[in-house]
Structures are given as structure tokens and as C-alpha cells.
Design a protein around this nucleic acid. Structure first.
Lengths: 357, 357
DNA sequence: GTGAAAGCGCTAACAT
DNA sequence: ATGTTAGCGCTTTCAC
């Protein structure tokens, strides 16, 4: 309680060397004689030295640049939220000379992604936070980063085989299971549930399949064959044709609910159902986008699962900045909880979007 | 990008005074002539000075002591979780000479609380984090703290009229509404729902009523008179008698579900229902206590609303320490989201109990 | 290889 | 009332 923390000065004293030498062995930089090394190491073994991270940062004048690579926020509200998280984190760090540079690519064109990663790489950032939407291109780019020793944090969609410094996201399979659970609750047998991948670029839909598989898995495990699921890719963007497609679905009078696997698609489908005056179907989708929240409150959407892209990016930068600045190892995987949002608890989520740090 | 942050030295230069003077006006300590004051204030107005909080802490050698006052963790798993959050926060801060001293009172004896607050007060802490379980005694104590200028953070149960530095908790009324929503989902009319306040000390039950009122409010608003609610205080601790009481409830064959307003009570009731072989009733309760999680996974409990006492205490200390150490004002109210936990998403919550900071 | 010393931005004690 | 200065614990530079 009264004992002050051990300082590197103390270690120097105990080991009978100068603080410069201690610093050198602590960070193994510069040259140290075998003898001095042993002396320092042995005293380090005896005491519990915890460096004062705060002081550390003062002494250094290094500035860090973090490159963030995400889809254009203007294209999609989900990514607009992600951008908010980035700006929050950036604001927190820029007074400590950790600068965040954002690079936006076109969500629907992998060439744009490819190009952007290359130009981002040329800026020689100290670290990268990236949403690796396009698998192959991302894989290639991240190998580049490994070669040039640039640490990177992945969020939203994982590429486990690349071993990022940290991955931030959700278990999408489980996410589908949660949707299925909420879908089936209190529903009468028999019934059909539709899984809709509403997505202009089928490119992205690889990870949407995880959600679908989780959804189907739930019923398999429960052994409820009277509940059927059917999946459908919807890449249609034209309003009228879309409406037709949904009307086709509704012909099945066993249809009890729809699970939409994308955040943007959620409000699209909700809008159509409202137009068709259909309020009985249970509708489950993703994310607290303003439009979705409206439909939730209107009663068209029953549940939203929150992927919290804002928080994901915030944490991504937080982890990377702490790693660069304070040498704090982040968790290899930071799986966010599968938050269930309803009409009654949505307000409690809207207020406290970002954790206080 | 290249411009370094503004330092107090820069301000001094611009205002044509010494850094000592600038420091004095920034913290209005010591004496400053009107003229110097104006010079500094006007340059401050022109530039955007953000103090380097990291450097600030280095220069000061003050040690802070935070007193935390909570029920004995040994008495109740909910408070054991709270204690975990405290230890986490304490570990983070003790290298910066912010020390946390915990004081445990007896959850069932207000005298114990009274006594403990007094002895805690005698230790002259620099700040207090408290769960004000016993309203009147807490009110009195907190007035004392105000008189002796000790800042305090309240969590778990609010006492708004005392204006704490910060309150951390949930909206209990809304929490009841969420429970009602989950309770009624997909249930056939007509039906009865029981609200059980399972609580050895009815003392604490004042705030449980908020949950009940929220629960009832939901049905009132929905205008569903075929759904009836009935509330019951259960202070019984004897296993056999308790079982009798629940059996009595079950006689009502319109009973569709039970809402338990306490975390400990949740597993108690779940245990009884399991013993009675009743799996059809919908059971909703509170918190991710190990026993509750077991019953959730077993299927007896359908939903848990997470009050996250661990996070509450963690944030409480975090806010107070940041306030003392870095002079960061915390939010006056920090309402945590009303997390809905089910069989399918519980794992995603168990992993990531505490946010990374 | 090693030690000594300057300095990071700020606070606090000391002169004036 | 105001300016100057010595640290805080660490990094970094510069002599030896």
C-alpha cells in the first residue's frame, strides 16, 4: 500500500548497473555484455517489475499512423455506423500522436478494394484495421502486410488462417441459432421460415451462409421437422421486382416468419411487408440502423440482432493503438455478445452505444 | 498531422506570461492578476488546448483511496459478481497509486450497513462507490459525504435526489416491460402471469416494484385484458414451504409464466419448477449467475435479463478513478442496456463479460 | 558496451 | 502575484 512501484532506477541500483543498461535489456535493444545481462535478468526475476506505461509514452516522440480500410460509409448505413466508431476512437488518440487515416473502398467492386489496399500499403502505416470483405484480395493484401511487418486487426468477417493481431466480431453461426430460437418461440406447428440473403453483391454472401447454417442447425438439433426453413438469395435492387419476389413467398400460407441476414436488407423487407400490409409474419433481422429501429418500433420487425459495427471498429482501433502505443497485447479473438433487440429494450441500447473507457 | 499538440508552454508564450501563471488559471489555484488572467483566457479562447492527461499524472505524487461499499459477496452470487468487477478495476489502477478498499455489509441487516458506512467514512477516502441498498441509511450517509466533500458514485439502485457524481444501473421499469414483452410473445389468450419478488429482506423490495410496474404497464398499454398479472412477495426461505407456495400458484391452470424479479430468486424458482417437473411455464428472471445459466441451458428458464453487476461496479470505479486521477467528468447517469439472454446467446455473453479498455 | 544527461508535458515547491 | 525550477519514470542521444 505504501510501497511505491518499482522503477527501472531501482532495478539498476539492485543490479549495480546504469538505468541505460536496464532499459537495453528490458527491450533488448543496443548491446549489453553477458555479465550485465545476467545481473539484470536475475534481479528482474526476484522482483515484479511492471513498467509505468504512462511514463513510457511521455519519453517517446514517435507518432503512429493507423490505416483503416472499410467500405464507403455513404453506400451503406451499417458502414456509416462503423465510421462513427472509427471517428470516436480517432478523437481519443490523436492527442497522443496516434493518427487514424481512413480509406474507403467501393462495397460492390473488388477492384476498388484491391486498388485501395495497395495505395494504403504505400503510405507505410504502423498498423492496419480492416474489414476484409473480399476474401481473396484481402488474403493477398494481409500477406503483404505480414511480409512488411505491419500489424493488422481484422473486424466484421474473420480470416482465421491469417492470424491477425486481433479479430473483432461475432460468431455468425451462433447468431443464426439465436435468430432461429427467437423465430420459433411460441409458434404453432407446422410452419415455414424463410432465410433471405438480401445483398446486391453476392460476393459478400459467403459469411451470410454461416448465419443460415446456424439457423437451420437450431431446428435440426431440436428435432422439429414440422418447422421447415428455406433460403433465398435476393440480389434484386428494383423495388417492383423485389415486391413481386416477396409476394411470391407469402403465397405459402405456412410461412411463419422471415429471417433477413443483412442489415440493409432488413429494412428493405420490412418496408415491403408494411406496404403489403402484412404484420403477422415474424421478422428478424440485423442491426440498430435508424430505419430498422423505426420498423422495430412500428411493430413490423420483431427482433434485431445487433452486430454493433460502431463498437467493432472502436475496439479495433483501441486494440491496435494500445498495442502500438503501450505494447499491450490485445486478445486474439474478441467476440462481441449477440445482442437481442426488441421494441422494449431498444432505447436502452440507443443511449449507450459506446462503452466509456 | 505534423503539428504537435498545444502545450501549456505554448499558451504561456502566446499570452506572454509564464507557464506557472497558465497553470494557475487553468486550475484556478493560487493568485493571478486580472490582467494576466484575461491574457491567458483570451489565448485559450483562440486555441483548442487539450491537456495531456498522461503527462499530468506523472507530475503528481498523490495517492488516491477509493472506498467501495457493497453487500458481502459470500451472501449472494449477484454480489460476488459485483466483487469480481471491483477487483478487475482495482488491479488496473493500483499501479497508478489509486487504491480500492472494499467494505462488506450484511445484506440482511441495515444496522450492519449503518455501522459500515460510518467506519468507512472514518478512513477518509478520496471517493466512494456504493450500492445504497438501505435507502434511509444511505441517504444519511451520502449527505455526510457531501458535507465532507467526498465524491461518490452510486450503482445498482439509484437515489436521484442526492445527485451522485454518477449513477450506474438500469432502468428497472423498462426492465419489467422487457420481461412482459418476452413473456407474452406467442402466448395464447387468455392467461395469467405471476410476478414473484423472492427476497428474504423485504427491505430491498422497493426497487423491485419498479420492475413489477413496468411489467404491468406493458399489458396496460397493449390493451390486452385477457392477460392478467398477479404479484406476490415471497420471503420464505424454507424449502418445503416455498415449494408449497409455488404449488399453490400452479393450481391456476391459466398460469402461463412466472417473472422473478431477483437474481437469486430466479434459480430458486427454477429449481422448484424442475422438482415439480414443470417445463411448460415460461420463466423469466435476472442475471447470469452460474446457477441461472444452468437452468437456462436445461430449459427451465427461458430468458434472463442481465443486470451485469460485474460491469456496473467496474464502471463505477472506472468513472470515479478517472474523475479523481484525470479529472474526467463521468456521465451523471450511465444506464446499461437491458440485455436479453437466451439459451442460444448465453455463451457469447459469458466469454466477454468485461469490456476491454 | 556503458553511463550520464536531456527532455517528454505537466505539477508543485521555491524564489522573487 | 509571477517566474523559475526540480522532479515524475521512462526513452533517447551522446559521450566515453
Amino acid at each position: 500500500m505504501e510501497k511505491k512501484n518499482i522503477r527501472i532506477k531501482d532495478i539498476a541500483q539492485l543490479a549495480g548497473v546504469s538505468i541505460g543498461t536496464v532499459d537495453r535489456v528490458l527491450h533488448n535493444r543496443g548491446k549489453v555484455s553477458e555479465e550485465a545481462l545476467q545481473k539484470v535478468l536475475s534481479t528482474l526475476r526476484e522482483i515484479d517489475y511492471k513498467p509505468n506505461l504512462i511514463a513510457r509514452t511521455l519519453g517517446t516522440k514517435k507518432v503512429f499512423r493507423i490505416a483503416v480500410i472499410i467500405p464507403d460509409p455513404a453506400q451503406d448505413e451499417y458502414w456509416a455506423q462503423a465510421h462513427i466508431g472509427i471517428r470516436h476512437a480517432a478523437a481519443e488518440w490523436d492527442q497522443y500522436d496516434v493518427y487514424v487515416e481512413t480509406h474507403f473502398f467501393d462495397l460492390y467492386h473488388k477492384e476498388s478494394f484491391l486498388q485501395l489496399t495497395q495505395s494504403a500499403h504505400l503510405t507505410k502505416p504502423d498498423g492496419i484495421v480492416i474489414a476484409p470483405i473480399f476474401y481473396h484480395e484481402a488474403l493477398h493484401f494481409l500477406h503483404q502486410c505480414q511480409a512488411s511487418k505491419i500489424p493488422f486487426v481484422i473486424f466484421n468477417t474473420n480470416i482465421p488462417e491469417i492470424h491477425p493481431l486481433s479479430f473483432i466480431g461475432q460468431n455468425l453461426f451462433d447468431s443464426g441459432r439465436v435468430a432461429a430460437e427467437l423465430m420459433s418461440l411460441g409458434q404453432d406447428l407446422p410452419g415455414t421460415f424463410a432465410v433471405l440473403h438480401v445483398n446486391e453483391a453476392s460476393e459478400n454472401s459467403i459469411h451470410l451462409l454461416d448465419k443460415q447454417r446456424g439457423f437451420e442447425h437450431f431446428f435440426k438439433v431440436k428435432n422439429q421437422p414440422e418447422f421447415k426453413t428455406m433460403a433465398l438469395d435476393i440480389t434484386e435492387t428494383e423495388e417492383a421486382k423485389l415486391l413481386k419476389q416477396v409476394q411470391g413467398l407469402l403465397k405459402d400460407n405456412q410461412l411463419k416468419g422471415i429471417f433477413v441476414t443483412t442489415s440493409k436488407g432488413t429494412s428493405t423487407i420490412a418496408g415491403i411487408l408494411e406496404k403489403l400490409g402484412n404484420k403477422d409474419l415474424r421478422l428478424i433481422g440485423y442491426d440498430l440502423l435508424p430505419e430498422n429501429v423505426e420498423h422495430l418500433q412500428a411493430g413490423t420487425i420483431d427482433f434485431l440482432i445487433n452486430q454493433n459495427s460502431k463498437h467493432q471498429t472502436f475496439l479495433g482501433i483501441q486494440h491496435l493503438a494500445n498495442f502500438l502505443f503501450l505494447k499491450k497485447e490485445p486478445p486474439a479473438r474478441n467476440l462481441l455478445p449477440l445482442e437481442i433487440i426488441t421494441r422494449e429494450n431498444v432505447n436502452s441500447y440507443l443511449g449507450s452505444a459506446l462503452p466509456q473507457t
